[in-house]
């Protein structure tokens, strides 16, 4: 255990050194290191893990977005899958019905989700806590039902043959190719989330989370920041949705967007660490891998997941991210105490 933590410590030191050279350097390096992952996975295991890597990237986008509005801004939203669905269906419809390329349909899908994010965010202005949870739950479910009963949105047959993106003659129709797309999207998403959360906006979010009255007293426009958090998370969800829709085999159905998916997302950020900047990423990776490795126990899987969620909320409320933080902080403290005692003697 200590070994794993010390690795984290070393990594964060290296990253800081690189970032001192140029802000973006660690990111470019990480992207470059992750690029050959499909080839590595294919050599070590098999191509199935490339598909899993794709899924993880999409889940990362979803969890990071959810963490922004839920973990950092403290708004209890349980309708995130609805925004995911809107992004997916919009992008799919535009490329299926208008024949526009992915590069047009995808941004429009994101925008549609962002607009919906305003709608989902409006209740947050007036409601808090459980009331907000109920409102967003209702909205999310309504989106799914609308998809299920409207033939244009696929109703219960689903939307088929959603075209894969192309650049010139290069088509993103294999999981290896698509991986490059979702990896880029995920890295951009993570980078943006770090920028936002470490900026004044992020601090405003956290102020709103801690105490809206105190934040307002300090000049934070609570309404604006609440809505902003929702819209940002909606943009992430819309991006994830569009990427999901165009991923081979290009099929979406309304039961991809049920409450079960919402609870899985919740589990991801709770496990990874609500309000921790790495929370969404850690959670997405761990939950997807554990889910995959326990597939043969499908009988007990949901029970395991629900129990994990309950136990983590009770015993480890800061999630894995919180545990790492605590360890690093303890190490720093011990180190600083040793320095003091060394300096004294």
């Amino acid at each position: 255990m200590t070994a794993i933590y010390s690795i984290f410590g070393r990594i964060s030191e290296t990253i800081e050194k690189l970032a001192a050279i140029h802000r973006l350097l660690p990111w470019i390096l990480a992207f470059a290191l992750l690029l050959p992952l499909p080839q590595i996975l294919s050599a070590l295991f098999n191509d199935y893990y490339i598909y899993l890597a794709n899924k993880i990237c999409i889940f990362i986008l979803l969890s990071v977005g959810l963490n922004i509005v839920k973990g950092f801004c403290g708004q209890v939203t349980v309708g995130h899958v609805g925004l995911y669905a809107i992004g997916a269906v919009s992008s799919a419809l535009i490329s299926l019905h208008f024949g526009w390329s992915f590069w047009l349909a995808f941004p429009i899908g994101i925008l549609a989700a962002g607009l919906a994010g305003i709608v989902v965010g409006l209740p947050s202005v007036r409601l808090e806590g459980a009331y907000l949870a109920l409102a967003t739950l209702g909205l999310g479910e309504s989106v799914r039902i609308m998809i299920a009963v409207t033939p244009l949105f696929g109703s219960s047959t689903g939307l088929l043959s959603i075209p894969a993106p192309t650049i010139g003659s290069f088509t993103f129709d294999s999981y290896t190719n698509y991986y490059y797309l979702v990896l880029a999207a995920a890295m951009i998403g993570i980078y943006l989330s770090f920028s936002i959360l470490r900026s004044a906006t992020g601090r405003a979010f956290m102020a709103v989370r801690e105490d809206t009255v105190a934040a307002a007293v300090h000049g934070v426009n609570v309404t604006k920041y609440k809505l902003l958090a929702f819209v940002i998370s909606a943009l992430y969800a819309g991006a994830a949705g569009g990427l999901f829709a165009h991923m081979p085999p290009g099929y979406i159905h309304h039961n991809n967007f049920t409450i079960i998916e919402m609870v899985t997302l919740l589990l991801m950020i709770v496990l990874g660490g609500i309000g921790h900047i790495w929370g969404g990423i850690i959670g997405a990776i761990i939950v997807t891998i554990i889910y995959d490795q326990t597939l043969e126990f499908y009988f007990y899987q949901p029970l395991l997941f629900g129990l994990t969620m309950v136990l983590i909320v009770i015993f480890m409320p800061r999630g894995i991210g919180g545990m790492i933080d605590r360890y690093l902080a303890t190490k720093k403290f011990i180190a600083s105490q040793e320095e003091k005692s060394n300096a004294a003697s």
Binding site: K70, V76, G129, P302, M309, V310, I314
Partner: peptide
């Protein structure tokens, strides 16, 4: 146990909601 951290049920807020979701999955299964 969620309220042991102090503050009673109100402050446990989001934790209770998430725990409730988790518990509903556990019970259903």
């Amino acid at each position: 146990r969620l309220t042991k951290g102090g503050g009673g049920y109100t402050v446990a807020g989001m934790g209770m909601i998430i725990c409730g979701f988790g518990m509903s999955i556990v019970l259903m299964n």
